[in-house]
Design a protein around this nucleic acid. Structure first.
Length: 844
RNA sequence: GCCCGGGUAGACAAAUUGGCAAAGUCAGCGGACUUAAAAUCCGCCGCUCGCAAGGGCCUGCGGGUUCGAAUCCCGCCCCGGGCACCA
């Protein structure tokens, strides 16, 4: 007997080498725009958009080595890519690296090693491991965002946005470490408001910075969520982040100063209950208003104090309300009442207009403030059961619900508050004192970073001409090499004097370069477009290439990117579409978010010492086992706990499939072509095994459609176990069919062993086979209806395709003997005893 | 406090969405092979009453709808994640 030991270290490199040699996973653009030079295949009947499929996983940030989370993401994505290929699609499945970013720069500050060097090392390590995992990547389209050939086009997009007025400069607060002389990212600030590196107290500084006008797109970013096939919880998070609220803008006038102050409110129906007015400490008019009043000095102190408080302090809702009277009044436009003005830190400058009308009877925070400062509280909405009819009682306040208006105005009293909202807004509009308005929580995107390792912002400052964009033919603005990455009170790029000093393209006079670089989220907001035409050096892409592939059919990544990355990429897509560069509105048609991998119930981290390295696992059991296990351990959208014992179980299963197949091939005297369902006439073990095989086909293809990889793998395990039990009693032909089918079904999860087994049994390449019931084929078949009757009543109907053999139908009906079924009008089977479970009858 | 998830054998889970609860994997127990071990293969594996055949009870807890509920509805308990002065 030959040495039938499953040896992944022999099998896996062999197939990987073949796939690399034959460039199996490369797909050419039919427009000839880019990609590989594979001759175009003529596939009749359907156009490219339908035949092509774009499967994409979020690109990795290359730092150190890939971890288990990467293994999970790319195992899920690869399974989807293979699944779609085997439905007959041409699948684009590329890979790249999000290679700019803070960790490489910090490493450089510490060691002096240029980020380009350490990044290249990490990329090599990622690429090597992805090859070892056997992921089916079109390597001809590989990219890295730190390469000038890529960021040249990031800069081009920035300039397009700039010309369209979507990129602009304004002052904004940054966190600043006075000791390190540098801007800090939020994650570099400790909970106590100290610099994570040196422990100094973090300060706030105002800097002129670049913003992208994502708020212009708030409405469309919200509305178009309805058009995409994303998990509902992700859509909910995006909706909440955009934070649309409808209400009214109402003008309160300061008669003393002759200034109008608009406020935004969602409750114009409570306007008659406004008894004071509050401004945010950051509001530019606060100090002006307080000027000349007795408390001017104390207002100053309050504002300064509020500005230096950390978010943690200010964000605490339980904290007592604080504030200062400004000694001025504004007029409530609905009743002409002069109400006092305050400044208080519970009002935020970023939301609405930075000032509010306070209605203590009907808002919790206003109520708390009124109580703390002894301000009047006037009820203007009656509660249920006539509560608060006279408007004087304190019971049930603050009341934030709805009810009839009271104590307002004879014209409005008695109207239900829901209706009163629009009635009062209409009245304000007529009087010129306000109008209906919509507000969003979404804020413009700050893209400036005072960092070295990022895409340079392609802008020049000329004394004569002002701000000048770098002309397109001078792109890319390359990142200069510098000696010292340590920040010294300005962006590290400012130290590269030769680079900073340049020439104005308009007047040829001296000009200085922008020294801020871009947020790395900018780099990753368009990379999916670049893959479609990755080696184009005349343009960011050829529109014909995008038409072939975009939008991404299936996007896959961690839920931690549910808001920022996914929102920014959608914004870029819409903005570029408006500029005429794209003809679609959404980048990712379908999204799958996979769960975290934990160890012993908690997140893997170096400090906990519970990190599992994919490389170590693969050394021990091979890539197929590792990939299969990570998908088998639980539903892939949920968190999963890594267990070394569980890995052993999957390893045993993969080995069992391989050994059984090697043994079967040997007994058969070598591979025989094709894999056709054998004819089985009698009842017996052959029929049992055949049924199991058909069941597995149905189960796995169904499960793949809904990402239930764990149960798909379990079904193959069950099939293999059945083969093992029946290996001495079933015919060789049936064993071959069952094992070959099992291997074929396993291909998306364990490609190497699957390819090896299939090759042994049939001499054919498993990835060139189509699923027995490809969706397309199914659509083209005639369909019959199986009618299920229980106790004479029609319970349900299922559809069976016409090319299901009578034997198969009979098998299925026998398997569910309690169901009476009709095929094409003819009664096929028998009596109902106990209601059977109908779906068992589906034939695909 | 609000918004999402989730709660099924000792552990991870399945139940194709209202149709025989617990497929599959791990752990555990027993057996075959072996001088032995490993590897491999076979069998058992929710609780309970019973010598047995067989019966009763089981999806966090309590109710409801239904011929039929892990699944739908109402109330409660627990766990995880996110948001938190958003006018």
């Amino acid at each position: 007997m030959a040495d039938n030991r499953y040896d992944p270290h022999e099998i896996e490199p062999r197939w990987q080498a073949l796939w690399a040699r034959e460039r199996t996973w490369e797909v050419a653009n039919e427009s000839g725009a880019s990609g590989s030079s594979e001759p175009r295949a003529e596939l009749p009947g359907r156009d490219a958009a339908e035949r092509n499929s774009y499967v994409l996983e979020m690109l990795p940030y290359p730092s150190g080595e890939p971890h288990i989370g990467h293994l999970k993401t790319y195992s899920v994505g690869d399974a989807m890519a293979h699944y779609r290929r085997r439905l007959g699609r041409r699948v684009l499945h590329p890979m790249g690296y999000d290679s700019f970013g803070l960790p490489a720069e910090n490493h450089a500050i510490k060691t002096g090693v240029h980020p380009r060097i350490s990044t290249a090392e990490s990329i090599d390590s990622f690429r090597r491991q992805f090859h070892q995992w056997g992921i089916s990547i079109d390597w001809s389209r590989e990219l890295a965002t730190h390469e000038p050939s890529y960021y040249r086009w990031t800069q081009w997009i920035f300039l397009e946005l700039f010309r369209a007025g979507l990129a602009y400069r304004k002052e904004a607060a940054v966190k600043w470490c006075p000791k390190d002389q540098t801007v800090l990212a939020n994650e570099q600030v400790t909970a106590e408001g100290r610099c994570e590196r040196c422990g100094a107290l973090v300060e706030v500084r105002q800097l002129e910075q670049w913003f992208l006008r994502i708020t212009d797109y708030a409405e469309r970013l919200l509305a178009d969520l309805d058009q995409i096939d994303w998990p509902e919880h992700v859509k909910t998070m995006q909706r909440n982040w955009i934070g649309r609220s409808e209400g009214a803008e109402v003008t309160f006038r300061s008669e003393e100063l002759g200034i109008d102050y608009p406020v935004f409110t969602t409750r114009p129906d409570t306007l008659f209950g406004a008894t004071f007015f509050v401004m945010a400490p950051e509001h530019p008019d606060v100090l002006r208003l307080a000027a000349g009043t007795p408390d001017e000095h104390r207002v100053h102190e309050y504002v300064n104090h509020a500005l230096t408080e950390s978010n943690e302090e200010r964000g605490n809702a339980e904290r007592p309300k604080t504030g200062m009277a400004l000694g001025r009044t504004v007029v409530n436009p609905v009743n002409g009442e002069a109400i006092p003005m305050y400044v208080a830190d519970y009002v935020l400058m970023e939301y609405g207009t930075g000032a509010i009308m306070a209605v203590p009877a009907h808002d919790e925070r206003d109520h708390a403030f009124a109580q703390a400062f002894g301000l009047p509280i006037r009820r203007v909405i009656a509660g249920p059961a006539g509560e608060g009819d006279d408007g004087t009682g304190e019971q049930g306040l603050p009341y934030t619900g709805d009810g009839p208006l009271i104590n307002s105005h004879p014209d409005f009293d008695g109207i239900d508050s829901r209706e009163a909202r629009s009635v009062i807004v209409a009245w304000l509009d007529r009087e010129g004192k306000g109008h209906a308005s919509v507000n969003y929580k979404l804020r413009d995107w700050l893209v400036s970073r005072q960092r070295y390792w990022g895409t340079p912002i392609p802008i020049l400052y000329c004394d004569r001409c002002g701000m000048v964009p770098v002309p397109e033919d001078q792109l890319p603005v390359e990142l200069p090499d510098i000696e010292d990455y340590t920040p010294k009170g300005r962006s590290p790029l400012a130290a590269a004097e030769d680079w900073v000093n340049s020439t104005c393209p308009t007047c040829d006079g001296p000009a200085r370069r922008e020294t801020d670089t871009m947020d790395t989220f900018v780099d990753s907001s368009w990379y999916f477009l670049r893959y479609c035409d990755a080696s184009n050096d005349a343009a960011a892409w050829d529109p014909a290439a995008l038409r072939e592939w975009m939008p991404v059919d299936q996007y896959i990544g961690g839920v931690e990117h549910a808001i920022l990355h996914l929102m920014y990429a959608r914004f870029f897509t819409k903005a570029l579409a408006d500029l005429g560069h794209l003809d679609f509105q959404e980048p990712f048609q379908a999204l799958f978010t996979q769960g975290m991998v934990t160890k012993d119930g908690s997140k893997m981290s170096k400090s906990r010492g519970n990190v599992v390295s994919p490389a170590a696992i693969i050394d021990r059991v091979g890539a197929d086992t590792a990939r299969c296990y990570i998908l088998f351990v639980g539903p892939p959208d949920q968190d999963a706990d890594w267990s070394d014992e569980g890995v052993e179980g999957v390893h045993r299963f993969v080995g069992r499939l391989w050994r059984l197949s090697a043994e079967t091939a040997e007994r058969a005297g070598g591979p025989s072509a094709g894999l056709r369902s054998p004819i089985v006439s009698d009842e017996g073990d052959d029929l049992t095994l055949l049924r199991k095989t058909h069941w597995a086909i149905d189960k796995v293809t169904g499960d793949l459609r809904r990402f239930a990889f764990n149960t798909a793998i379990a079904a193959v395990m069950e099939l293999v176990n059945e083969v093992s039990r029946l290996r001495d009693s079933a015919s060789l032909e049936t064993l071959r069919f069952a094992l070959g089918t099992g291997a074929s079904l396993l291909f998306p999860f364990a490609p190497h062993v699957s390819a090896d087994v299939y090759d042994r049994l049939t001499g054919e390449r498993v990835w060139e086979q189509r699923w027995p019931e490809a969706e397309e084929a199914l659509l083209e078949r005639d369909v019959y209806e199986l009618v299920c009757q229980v106790n004479g009543r029609v319970r349900d109907r299922v559809q069976a395709s016409s090319d299901a053999s009578p034997e198969t139908l009979k098998d299925l009906c026998l398997a569910a003997p309690n169901v009476q079924a009709h095929l094409d009008g003819r009664e096929v089977v028998k009596e109902v005893v106990v209601p059977g479970k109908l779906v068992n009858l589906v034939v695909r």
